[in-house]
Amino acid sequence: MKHLRQLEDQSVYILREAYKHFNNLAMLWSMGKDSTVLLWLARKAFFGHVPFPLLHVDTSYKIPAMIEYRDRLAREWRLNLVVGQNKEALAAGMNHTMGRVVCCTALKTNGLKQLLEHKGYTGVILGVRADEEGTRAKERYFSPRDKHGDWDFRDQPPELWDQYKTTFPPGTHIRIHPLLDWTEINIWEYIKLENIPFIDLYLDKGEGIRYRSLGCAPCTTPIKSTAKTVDEIIEELRHTTVAERSGRAQDEGRGMELLRKDGYM
C-alpha cells in the first residue's frame, strides 16, 4: 500500500502544479480505468472538487454502457463535462474499415485538436502510462505540443526534480501526464484501495471474457478471463505476460508511434 501512496503523492503534486500554472486547463476522460483513476486523483488533489472541465472526445463508436457511466458520474460528482466530436468526419462516413490509423487520426486526434482549438485550452491532463507502450515510456510529465499539436520527441524539454515545463509560446500547449509512473496493476490496486467506481465491462460476467483495455467497440476485443472481482483482476495481472493493449488494433506495427507524433493521446 505504501507504494500506492507514493504514486498518489507524486500525481497529486503534478495535478496541483498544473492547476497553478494553467489558466485554461482541462482533463481528458475516456471513462476507462486510467482516466477514471486520474479523475479520482483530481478529487484528492482538490479536496473533493474538480476545478476544470473534463473532456470526452466522442468517436460515436464507444460502447453504450460507457456513456451511461459517464453521465451518471458527471451528475453525482458534479463534473463540468465537455463532449467533442469530429462531426464532419463522421458525416463523411469515417469508420475503422477505412484503416485504423486513418480512423483514429480523424476521430480521436483531430477530434481532440478541434476541441482544444475551439476552447483554447493551454494545458490538457491525460491518463497515459509509461508501461502501456514504447513511446509513452519516453514521455515527460509536462510534455509540449507545437502549434499543430505535434510532439517533437527528438527534443523534449529537461525535467528536473519537481520542476516542470509550465511556460510555452502562444499557440502551443502542454500535455500533462500525472500517471506516467503507474502500472496497470497499480491502477487496479488503487481502485481497490480507494473503492473507485468503474465500468463492469472490465469484469467477466460468466462468459469467460472481459475487457482489459477499453477503446471503440469495433477496435477493442475482450480477452479470455474469468476475473469477476478487482482482486481477481490483480491476481490475474500478476501472472500474465500478455501485453495490456494486445486487444487494441492501433498498436500493431508502428501505428502508435505515428499516431502519437501527430498528437494522439
Partner: peptide
Amino acid sequence: DAFLEEQEQGITIDTARTF
C-alpha cells in the same frame, strides 16, 4: 529503444521508464 529512429541509428535518444 522504441522509436524507429533509435533502432535505425542504434542509439537511445530519450529516457525510457521501464517497470
